[in-house]
Amino acid sequence: MSASQTEPKPSYVKLAMRNMVQKRVTSLKHFVLTTVGLLAVLVGLAYLTR
């Protein structure tokens, strides 16, 4: 058995976290846009269904 077969592949969560740390500004922009978008959808639905 070679060493690459015994060690587990890094999980997608670990890769995503590493990527977020490396590309901090882009990640923050996407996080803010997603948060604002979700809030806009929720407020819009609340307005339409009142």
Results as ranks from 00 to 15, higher is better:
10 P>M: 09
11 S>Q: 04
11 S>E: 03
11 S>A: 06
12 Y>A: 14
12 Y>R: 13
12 Y>E: 11
12 Y>S: 12
13 V>S: 06
13 V>G: 05
14 K>C: 08
14 K>M: 13
14 K>I: 07
14 K>S: 15
14 K>H: 12
15 L>Y: 02
15 L>M: 13
15 L>P: 00
15 L>W: 04
16 A>S: 10
16 A>Q: 01
17 M>P: 00
17 M>T: 10
17 M>K: 12
17 M>A: 13
17 M>R: 08
17 M>S: 11
17 M>D: 02
18 R>P: 00
18 R>M: 07
18 R>I: 07
18 R>L: 09
19 N>Y: 14
19 N>Q: 12
19 N>R: 15
19 N>T: 10
19 N>H: 14
20 M>Q: 04
20 M>L: 08
20 M>V: 06
20 M>F: 00
20 M>T: 05
21 V>M: 06
21 V>N: 03
21 V>I: 11
21 V>T: 06
21 V>C: 05
22 Q>R: 15
22 Q>F: 06
23 K>T: 11
23 K>M: 07
23 K>N: 15
24 R>L: 09
24 R>T: 09
25 V>G: 07
25 V>A: 10
25 V>D: 07
25 V>E: 09
25 V>C: 02
25 V>I: 09
26 T>W: 15
26 T>M: 11
26 T>F: 13
26 T>H: 12
27 S>R: 05
27 S>K: 00
28 L>D: 02
28 L>S: 01
28 L>F: 11
28 L>N: 06
29 K>W: 03
29 K>R: 10
29 K>N: 06
29 K>F: 08
29 K>L: 13
30 H>Y: 14
30 H>A: 07
31 F>W: 04
31 F>C: 07
31 F>S: 14
32 V>E: 00
33 L>A: 11
33 L>R: 00
33 L>V: 08
34 T>A: 15
34 T>C: 09
34 T>H: 01
35 T>Y: 08
36 V>K: 04
36 V>A: 10
37 G>P: 00
37 G>R: 05
38 L>M: 12
38 L>F: 12
39 L>K: 04
39 L>V: 15
39 L>M: 14
40 A>H: 00
40 A>Y: 06
41 V>H: 00
41 V>I: 15
41 V>A: 04
41 V>L: 13
41 V>Y: 08
42 L>G: 04
42 L>D: 02
42 L>F: 13
44 G>K: 02
44 G>W: 08
45 L>E: 04
45 L>S: 06
45 L>T: 08
46 A>G: 11
46 A>N: 07
46 A>R: 11
46 A>Q: 10
46 A>S: 09
47 Y>R: 13
47 Y>A: 14
47 Y>Q: 10
48 L>V: 07
48 L>A: 14
48 L>I: 04
49 T>S: 10
49 T>D: 00
